[in-house]
Nucleic acid binder design. Structure first.
Lengths: 264, 264
DNA sequence: GAAATCGGTGACAATATCGCACCGTCGATG
DNA sequence: CATCGACGGTGCGATATTGTCACCGATTTC
C-alpha cells in the first residue's frame, strides 16, 4: 500500500451521513497517526479534494470534484448515455429503475429514475448498494470474476438489514452462480423488507461488469410473473445500454438473454 | 512536496483537449520518471480516480469523481445555491452570466447561464478562465491577498490571446488595484476580441474570494453606460449570492457596493 | 478548575520512493 | 520484411519521505 493509496483512502470515510470529519476522527477511523493523517490531508487540501472549515477546523470534500466530474462526463459521457435506458424501462414497467455504478470497491446508485406510480420504491441518488443484500450488489458479484467477488464480500458474517438478509458469504456466492446462469439477479426483502428487485449487468469495453441496472418494485406488485417479466426486460435494457456505452457483451451472456426472450 | 501532491498533480494534465494520457506522456508532461508515474497512476486507478483503457493503455479520469461530486453537492450544495442568482441576472441584463469557481490553482466556469438573446456570448461549461485575461480572473486576483495574486500570475510574460491582452504581471496587478477599489473588474477584448465583461467576487465563510460572477456582452452592446450598469448589478447579485452561500462579505466591500447603488 | 480532547508540531528511526538500466511489444519507415 | 524508435512496464540500490511518539496551547467537559 503506497502513501497515495493511504491518502486517497481517507476520502472514503466521507458519506452522506458523515460529510465533515475532524483530524482526530480521521486518525481514529483510519488507524493512521494524527501526524500522518494531517500530512495527507494537507496534500488533499492543496489539490482541492478536501477543504477545511476555518471555524470548526473540520474537513469536507472539496471543489475539485465538481471540476473533474464535469471533465470526465464531457470526455466520457457515461451518465448521459445510460440515463435514457433507465428512463425508458421505468416507464415501460412502471417501477423505479436505478443504475448502480462501481468505483473503488463500492457500488452506489449513480442514476435513479423513480416509478411514475404513486406507490413506488424510493432510491436515493448516491445510495450505497451493499453487495450481499441488494439485487444490484448480487448482480455485480454474479458477473464479476469469482475471486474478485470473494474479495468484495470479505470474510463475513455480513451485515444484517432484516430477517431475510443473507449473512454467510458462501450462501451469497452460491446464489450468485444461479443468477449468473439465469442472466439477472433477484433480491426479495434482503435490504428493505417490502421491496423485491431484479438487476442485470452492464459491461465495459473489456467485457467486465462495471454497472448494474435494477428494477425495484413494492412487494405487493411483485408476484412471480411480474418479477420474471421485469427480469427479462431489465436484461434486454442493460444489454442495449452496454452497446450504447461501447461496452462488450460477452457472447455467452447475449445467448442467455436471447433465450429469455424466446421463452417469453 | 509530498508524494501525494505529486500523484494528484498528474490529474491536472487532463483537460477537455487532452482527455486521455499515456504513461510516457505523463512522464514527459510532469517531469517524473516513468516508473514513478506508473506507481502513482496505480494508486489513482485503485481509488477509481483514473481508469485505463484496456486497448490503448491510455489513462482517463475515473468514475469516482462522479460519486464524490454528488456527495459534495449533497452535503454542500454550492452549484444549486449559486445558479439561481446567475439565472436571475442573465434574464435581468439579457447577457450571458457565468460563475467562475477556483480550485487547486485554476479558475473555471462552473456555472453558465446563456443570454436569452440570439446575439450572445457563448461560454462553455468548465472553460478555463485565465487570471490575466478575463474579467473573472482579474476579479479573482483583485480580491485575493496580493501575495497570492502574485503567486498565481507567476513571473510572466503571460500568454497573449490577442492584441489587447495584458502580458506584464505588473500591469495586471496595478489594474487589479483599480478593480478592487471599484468593486468589480472589467475586461474588454483581453480574451475574446469581441467581448466585454464585468465580474464581481463571491466570498466564502472566511471572507476569502473563492468564486466570481461575470457578465459577458458582445462589444456591440457594451457601451459605457451599459457596462457600468452591468457592473453595479453583478456586484449586487454576487453579494446576495455570497450571503445565500453563508459566505462573509467583508465590511469594506459591502460599503463599496452600497455606494455604487446610491450613485445609480 | 482539573481533566480530557481537540488541532497541530518537531524529530528520529524505518521504509517507501526516485532514478536508472533494461525488457518485450507494437507500428512506422526504409 | 528488417530496423528503428517509442511504447508500457519491471527490478533494484541509493536516498528522501514517511511512521511514530512525545509534546504544545487552546477548547470543551464535567
Amino acid at each position: 500500500m503506497t502513501t497515495v493509496d493511504k491518502a486517497l483512502s481517507l476520502l472514503e470515510y466521507f458519506s452522506d451521513l458523515r460529510p465533515e470529519i475532524g483530524l482526530s476522527e480521521f486518525a481514529r477511523l483510519s488507524g493512521f497517526d494524527k501526524s500522518a493523517a494531517l500530512r495527507m490531508l494537507g496534500a488533499l487540501v492543496r489539490a482541492g479534494f478536501v477543504e477545511q472549515d476555518a471555524h470548526s477546523r473540520k474537513y469536507r470534500l472539496g471543489r475539485s470534484f465538481l471540476r473533474f466530474a464535469r471533465m470526465r462526463e464531457e470526455a466520457f459521457p457515461m451518465t448521459q448515455v445510460l440515463r435514457p435506458f433507465a428512463e425508458r424501462i421505468a416507464v415501460q414497467t412502471g417501477e423505479t429503475c436505478h443504475i448502480g455504478v462501481f468505483s473503488a470497491g463500492t457500488l452506489s446508485a449513480g442514476i435513479v429514475v423513480l416509478s411514475p406510480q404513486s406507490n413506488r420504491v424510493h432510491v436515493a441518488q448516491g445510495l450505497n448498494l451493499p453487495f450481499h443484500a441488494t439485487a444490484s450488489g448480487l448482480c455485480f458479484l454474479a458477473f464479476s470474476e469469482p475471486p474478485e467477488a470473494r474479495r468484495l464480500l470479505g470474510e463475513g458474517p455480513l451485515e444484517r438489514y432484516n430477517a431475510a438478509t443473507m449473512t454467510d458469504p458462501k450462501q451469497v456466492l452460491s446464489e450468485c452462480e444461479r443468477f449468473r446462469a439465469q442472466g439477472f439477479s433477484l433480491s426479495a426483502a434482503n435490504f428493505d423488507p417490502d421491496v423485491k428487485s431484479v438487476a442485470a449487468p452492464i459491461f465495459d469495453a473489456e467485457g467486465r461488469v462495471f454497472a448494474t441496472m435494477a428494477l425495484a418494485a413494492p412487494m405487493i406488485r411483485a408476484h412471480d410473473s411480474a418479477t420474471i417479466e421485469n427480469g427479462r426486460l431489465v436484461c434486454a435494457a442493460a444489454m442495449e445500454a452496454t452497446k450504447a456505452f461501447a461496452g462488450d457483451v460477452p457472447g455467452w451472456y447475449a445467448q442467455i438473454v436471447t433465450s429469455l426472450d424466446k421463452a417469453a
